[in-house]
């Protein structure tokens, strides 16, 4: 198991190095000069050149790449062209909202999907199954911002249980923060839960058809015991894969929900910095997202091995 983990860790480092190269050079070849963009189209050539040198844009590509990577390694992401503040600080602020939001949504989606998927699989073809399948169909079809608006309408405007948007900050207390993230987390979680429940159901149904389930029944286990003791763990692998993918999406893909709820999260930061050609911010945020995706994949790999002894040995 330790060897397996070390092997996955090595591949994590290699992926990161490769990703940083790709991100740096792709952003470099993107058209548009940040200095010219900041100064406007009518700026003097020498003013632009001065700003370029001030922003550190005149070094060679290799120098700038090394600066950027070595800076990131010690937590220094550089300085934003537009806001002239530390990128690291900007990202940290946003991450304090986006990360809890993503985790919150993921926890909700898993909490909804697991029971729903198991329930449907255990009642395959019966009304309970059809009900769950119908609901998930709806959950996938309806966009999450529509859910978001409905939630605001019902719980914020009519019932006044939650505020309609904004984030008070964690210094106002843990509960206040969680409360502010609840509606966005639900809106994000519902479509994800619908997908996850379907994956859970079909994976479990596949497992229920396996020979060892029949063996379990022949031992005297009830249908339910066989499902819980032998079915579930074998059905988890595809579900873990989807959970990993969903987390990555939730971290960066929440931009519409962030807009609906006026949350200053990572998604909005990326959007703003792209429109303002704030290359260093874009690069850093993208790198951070790539890092988190690779890290989540690493964790999912470890989870696979925890679930399935065959994978532990293959390493």
């Amino acid at each position: 198991m330790l060897r397996y983990a070390l092997k996955r860790l090595t591949s994590l480092v290699i992926s990161l190095a490769f990703a940083s190269l790709v991100i740096f050079f792709v952003t470099e070849v993107a058209p548009g000069d940040p200095a010219r963009f900041m100064l406007g189209m009518n700026a003097q050539e020498d003013t632009v050149a001065a700003l370029r040198s001030e922003l550190g844009l005149d070094g060679s590509k290799a120098e700038r790449y090394l600066d950027w990577v070595s800076g990131m390694a010690v937590g220094d992401f550089g300085t934003s062209y537009t806001y002239r503040t530390s990128v690291g600080g900007m990202i940290a602020d946003r991450l304090w909202i986006s990360l809890p939001l993503a985790l919150y949504a993921l926890a909700l989606s898993t909490a909804i999907a697991f029971p729903a998927g198991i329930y449907a699989a255990a009642r395959r073809g019966r009304p309970g199954d059809m009900g769950v399948m119908g609901a998930t169909q709806l959950g996938i079809a309806v966009p999450n911002f529509w859910f978001a608006m409905m939630l605001v309408l019902i719980f914020a405007i009519n019932l006044r249980w939650f505020s309609a948007g904004g984030f008070p900050g964690w210094d106002k207390g843990l509960w206040t923060g969680i409360k502010a993230l609840t509606l966005p987390a639900i809106a994000l979680a519902l479509p994800q839960a619908a997908i996850l429940a379907r994956v859970m159901r079909s994976s479990l149904l596949d497992t229920l058809g396996e020979d060892f389930m029949r063996t379990a029944r022949a031992k005297g286990l009830t249908r339910r015991q066989a499902l819980w003791r032998h079915g579930l763990r074998n059905a988890l692998i595809p579900v873990l894969t989807i959970i990993g993918l969903q987390f990555s999406f939730l971290l960066a893909g929440a931009i519409i929900i962030e807009q609906v709820f006026y949350l200053p999260g990572l998604g909005r930061l990326v959007f703003q910095s792209i429109t303002q050609r704030d290359l260093i911010v874009v690069e850093s945020v993208v790198m951070l997202l790539v890092f988190s995706v690779i890290l989540v994949n690493f964790l999912v790999d470890l989870a696979y091995a925890a679930v399935d002894p065959r994978l532990r040995q293959r390493a």
């Binding site: 396996e210 020979d211 060892f212 029949r214 063996t215 032998h230 763990r233 074998n234 399935d308 002894p309």
Partner: peptide, 16 residues
């Protein structure tokens, strides 16, 4: 009643 099946490769739960 005990039962033994045809396919030993798949008759056991692989994760236990």
């Amino acid at each position: 009643v005990g039962m033994v099946f045809q396919e030993p490769m798949t008759a056991l739960n692989p994760v236990k």
